[in-house]
Nucleic acid binder design. Structure first.
Lengths: 250, 250
DNA sequence: AGCGCTAGGTAACAACGTGTAACGGACCGG
DNA sequence: CCGGTCCGTTACACGTTGTTACCTAGCGCT
């Protein structure tokens, strides 16, 4: 697990059975993470307040306290990833785990290697939660009559009609929108859109692909594509999204 | 500027000319942000230590101190966005500003509305620096001989040959990789890939588009597509990336 | 102003990517 | 063993995307 990143993961192991707790902490430590044992809710909160915790392995049955309740509480307060561990394997038990916000649910007895894999998966997911796993932006953007609903990836014309933008046109719009009033070079746009186009990297000049995308986008959202008011050209540089945008949550 | 988000932006206005400073702070305050005046480097560091600062408007000429030097220093220490403000409009002056890490460079005298737009742009850029503006992951992932270079968006076969994956195949691979060992439903995958396919949302069952993508990806990276070892099928659910992955920085 | 150069707009084309439909096999229940 | 569902696979058709080519607009130069 040494490859997981620069920082060593700090994992809180919560189980009221001392034997189980020791087994898990030892195993995790042998695999390169810092495992901190805990048995009660009180101990959990103490750890959360004192130091960084990257992941909580939470047993469902903790004597008089319920792991589910604890998980629900944790979730409303913080954003620590939680893997529920339980001997209860029924589907509705699992569902209950996911419902209170658990990231994963592992049934005892489990294969230690599998536990490790799940831990790894959850950690790496939380680490780049915004890049690959793609936490979706839920805002709505409005500019000169147009509406872009980031949640549904939909663009509405001033008349309220949905416009058919292709995926890349969408991506281009998003990129320019995200950098409103900032001129972007073709290279920057290409980078953001993953244009590894054939002629792109070979020539010093990134192909005309971006120009075409802009042209096509303009033809769909500009009232007069000949005199663009939204997507302006910065001669010798690139393009700018140059009207004001208001954002609102949905 | 009220739409900028839940939190009110806290902007540090650094200028040694009291009149200018007042003008800018008042204007920013009228437009919904908290503007804090400062004149010296000492005041800046004090503010940075005492409270959250979302943006610094930094005058280039500050009596005996140079805004450029201050900016360079700030950049090596922290990650606060900086907009340089200056009466010097020559290109090499601007370049100098960007070189020390400024996010933007505004020439005095400026149109207040434009200042606001730039401020807004920089703030919104820093706020979602990882979603739309797409901070690229620079890791390299290795699994069963294969290499995925996230930086260049390139996949190398065990023999070291670059494989031609289409953009969506790449995206699919990324998504599954990011959720290694976690079974993903077709809906989750579709969501991550922005599949708003024609038959997709209308039917309860998301079309077979994902199946096809998986099939095509398998045909390119599985040694025996008939017996997939990397991209396994979870019958009734979806697909899992089910081999171990090691990550490393590049 | 006139000239020429370069950058950008645009049309047409070709190639590729991608979703759908259809068929067949695998798996799982009774 | 049989039926149904789920999935793999092939074939196909359409949309999308990058390129080439040509033209126009902008800009510096003499």
């Amino acid at each position: 697990m040494g490859e997981l990143g620069v920082t060593i993961p700090r994992i809180l192991v919560v189980d009221d059975d001392p034997e189980m707790r020791n087994m898990m902490t030892q195993f995790l430590r042998q695999n390169g993470s810092i495992a901190l044992p805990a048995a009660t809710e009180f101990e959990i909160t103490r750890h959360l307040e004192t130091g960084r915790i990257d992941l909580i392995l939470l047993d469902v049955m903790l004597g008089d306290e319920s792991g589910l309740d604890i998980c629900r509480k944790l979730r409303t307060e913080q954003d620590v990833p939680v893997i529920m561990v339980s001997a209860l394997s029924a589907d509705n038990q699992r569902m209950a785990g996911y419902e209170v916000g658990a990231d994963d649910y592992i049934v005892k007895p489990f294969n230690p290697k599998l536990l490790l894999a799940r831990v790894k998966a959850v950690l790496s997911r939380s680490r780049r939660s915004s890049s690959l796993t793609h936490r979706r932006n839920t805002k709505t953007y409005r500019f000169s009559g147009w509406t872009y609903d980031a949640k549904r990836d939909v663009v509405l014309s001033p008349e309220g009609v949905q416009v058919a933008l292709s995926r890349r046109e969408m991506a281009l719009l998003q990129t320019l929108l995200a950098n409103q009033h900032i001129p972007l070079t073709r290279e920057e746009i290409a980078e953001a859109l993953d244009v590894t186009g054939d002629a792109a990297q070979s020539q010093e000049r990134v192909g005309r692909a971006i120009d075409m995308l802009v042209a096509r986008l303009r033809s769909k959202i500009e009232t007069d594509p000949k005199d663009p008011r939204i997507l302006k050209t910065e001669r010798g540089t690139g393009y700018v999204f140059s009207v004001d945008v208001t954002e609102s949550e949905t």
